[in-house]
Design a protein around this nucleic acid. Structure first.
Lengths: 225, 225
DNA sequence: GTGGTTTACGGAATACGTAAATATG
DNA sequence: CATATTTACGTATTCCGTAAACCAC
C-alpha cells in the first residue's frame, strides 16, 4: 500500500468521480482507475459503486475513507515533525492559482537571490485549500488574495493586481470602464478549469480573460486595483 | 512513501542493524540499504549513523521512529476495520516458528477440506510477537506452545510434540534418556537463526537437533511429550 | 581479516499516459 | 448519443537479488 493510493481514493471520494478527481490531481483517469483497482484487490473489498454518472462509495468505502484520512494525517504530522531536523531549511509557500504567474516568478527570483541557502517549495491550489494548509502547518506562507478583514499582524499587502472582465460587445457591461465585484454577484460566468483559462474564440470579442471563481461559488467583494 | 519503507525502517531501528533486520524481514541487505536511502532522501534527513559495527539512530531517526510506528498502527487499524466488509472470510492464523511443519500442514489441509469457503492466512514468528498479534487483533488464532498457565476457555491443547536434545557424546546428559527442561535452565546452547536449524557437522554426533529458544532468553518449563 | 554497509548491474513488477473499447442513462 | 470508466499497450521508473567493492574495528 502506497500513499498515492490513499490520496487517490480520498480525492475520488470527495469529488464524487474519477474524471473530476483526475483533473484536480493532475493525473489521467486510467491511472486512478488502476490505482483504485489495486487498492481494492489489496483490501479485498469494493470501494466504489461505479454504475451510472458518478462513483459512489460502498459501505466498505465509507468506512475506509475515515481510516484513509487518519493515515494521511498521520503521515503529514510525521513530515511536519521531521522538518526540524532537515539540514537545509525549506520555506513552504502556498500560492493561490489565480495569481498572475509573472508576479510569482518575480517574487521567487528576488527571494532566491537574497536567501540562496533557503530551499523553496511551492504548492498551488484554490484559496480554501491554501487556508487549510496554513492552519495545518503544511505551508509556512501563503501568497493569496486579501479580502480586507485579515489581521494586519499576520497578513501583508505585497502588490496589487488588476482584474479584467470579458463580456460580449452586446453585454450591458460592455460600455462601462470599471465594474465592482459586487455587481457581478449572481452573474453567470465561464468557469476556469484546473487553473487554466478557457480559451474563447470568435463570437466574443474579449477585452481580456481573468476571472476569480473559487470553484463555482459566487464571487464576493475583494480588493481590486 | 510506501509502507514497506516504514516497516524496513522500524525493523532496522529495533534490531539495531541492517543485516540482522534483513534476516528477520526475509529480504536482502542491499534492499534495505536502498529503501532507507530513498526514505532519507524523501525526508531530507539522515536516519542512521552507519559508522562502526551497528546502525544507530540519529536524533532525527529517533523522532521518526515514533511517527513511523504511529503510521504503521494506523494502517493496521484500517486493515482490521475493513475486514468486516470482505466478501470471503479470512481466518488469520499465527504460528510459532518452532512448531514442526508437518503438524501445521496437517491441520491446514484438514481445515481446508472442512471449511473450503474460508480463506486461510498464515503468519509465523516467535512466541512474543504471536502474543502481541493476538492482543492487537491482527490474528484470530495462534498455534503456539502451551505453558500450562493459559485460561482453558481461550486455549486448547491440540497435540503434543516431542522435543529432543542434542549433546556431544562426552556430555553428562549423553547417558540420560529424558531431561526436564528445568535442568537445561542456564546451559549454553546453539541458537537457532531465523527459524532455521543451525547445521552442526563432525565434532558433534547429534542425536537430533531441536531446541526451543525464544531469541536468546533462557528456556523455561513447558509441556513435553 | 572479519563483519557490516554500500555500489553496480540485470531482471521482474508496476505506474503512467495515449488510444481504443465498453457500459450507463 | 454523450459521459464516465475500464482495457490494452508502450515506456519509464523502481524494487529486488547477486556479486563485488568499500569501510571500520
Amino acid at each position: 500500500m502506497d500513499l498515492y493510493q490513499i490520496n487517490y481514493f480520498i480525492a475520488i471520494a470527495e469529488y464524487g468521480g474519477f474524471s473530476i478527481a483526475a483533473e484536480h490531481l493532475n493525473v489521467s483517469q486510467p491511472s486512478l482507475s488502476n490505482g483504485i483497482k489495486k487498492l481494492e484487490k489489496e483490501l479485498g473489498v469494493v470501494l466504489f459503486e461505479r454504475g451510472g454518472r458518478r462513483a459512489l462509495l460502498t459501505p466498505a468505502g465509507q468506512s475506509f475513507v475515515e481510516q484513509a484520512k487518519k493515515i494521511r494525517e498521520q503521515y503529514r504530522s510525521a513530515l511536519n515533525k521531521i522538518r526540524d531536523f532537515q539540514a537545509r531549511p525549506i520555506l513552504k509557500l502556498g500560492v493561490v492559482c489565480s495569481l498572475r504567474i509573472s508576479s510569482i516568478t518575480n517574487l521567487v527570483s528576488r527571494f532566491r537571490l537574497q536567501y540562496p541557502h533557503i530551499a523553496l517549495e511551492l504548492r498551488d491550489s484554490h484559496i480554501d485549500e491554501i487556508n487549510y494548509w496554513l492552519e495545518e502547518g503544511e505551508i509556512d506562507l501563503a501568497l493569496t488574495v486579501l479580502r480586507g478583514n485579515e489581521n494586519p499582524k499576520i497578513a501583508l499587502n505585497l502588490f496589487q493586481q488588476s482584474l479584467r472582465l470579458a463580456v460580449p460587445e452586446t453585454h450591458p457591461f460592455a460600455q462601462r470602464d470599471t465594474i465592482s465585484l459586487a455587481e457581478l454577484d449572481g452573474q453567470p460566468y465561464i468557469k476556469r478549469i484546473n487553473c487554466e483559462f478557457v480559451t474563447v474564440h470568435s463570437p466574443l470579442r474579449a477585452r481580456s480573460l481573468k476571472l476569480p471563481t473559487q470553484h463555482g461559488k459566487r464571487v464576493s467583494k475583494t480588493d481590486m486595483g
